[in-house]
Design a protein around this nucleic acid. Structure first.
Lengths: 112, 112
DNA sequence: CACAAATTAAACTGATTAGTTAATTAATCA
DNA sequence: TGATTAATTAACTAATCAGTTTAATTTGTG
């Protein structure tokens, strides 16, 4: 029973466009399941399942107001994603720097 | 045929711990399939499939040197991931700022 | 109490995923 | 040429995923 990396669930949750759209919506404001479902041509249970995936990954949490379950975005896992990707920043930075130098060289030649 | 968001494939590829470990290895240096497979207790075809997933997402590319297919990390999709997550930076930043203010308030009270 | 609304649960289907082993391709080497 | 090495392809299995429809649960309201 090796407990799996939480990033597995986070990246898995982010792999579906519907779920990313839901997050974009929640970034603006908390919303109920019906509100979140509205833009999609999809059954309500399907949306409910997507929300469960997001919740299992810790990316959203849910309240309980009357018969509504308002969803709330939890930013920490997204911060973890940014942190993970930042590990590789020096690699694309290096590529960017090389490009910049190449452009500078071309400028130098153009000045001849 | 709505062509799907490339982030689908990228996040999907990153959702597996073996694939993330492979990327960590490739961040240090290009490597062959056998080299990449070595740390894993898993058949070579399984690794081959993981590499195909990474390649399909554009996260790695592969060369052809003799009978070897050296793999190379392509940083752009990872940069895209960082950029995507950065959309949400203001949200966790706000939470961080609130925490900072709360700490300052506590300090103030302690000074009473 | 009865009903309507919001959401989830259950049961099912079809597609995809992650792995296996065995066979195949392609290139080097003796 | 024949053997060896690197890697992929093929064929298969078990599990998970993404969606459906129908039914149940929970809460508010007339």
């Amino acid at each position: 029973m090796t407990d799996s990396d939480p990033l597995d669930a986070v990246f898995g949750a982010l792999a579906h466009p519907v779920r990313r759209q839901i997050l974009a919506r929640l970034a603006e404001q908390d919303a109920t399941v019906n509100e979140l479902a509205e833009p999609f041509d999809m059954s309500l249970p399907a949306i409910s399942k997507h929300l469960r995936v997001l919740e299992a990954a810790g990316i959203i949490s849910r309240g309980k107001r009357a018969q509504f379950r308002p969803c709330h975005l939890e930013p920490e896992p997204l911060e973890a994603v940014a942190g993970w990707a930042d590990q590789y920043r020096h690699i694309w930075q290096a590529r960017f720097d090389a490009m910049t130098r190449a452009i500078e060289t071309m400028k130098g030649k153009a000045d001849d």
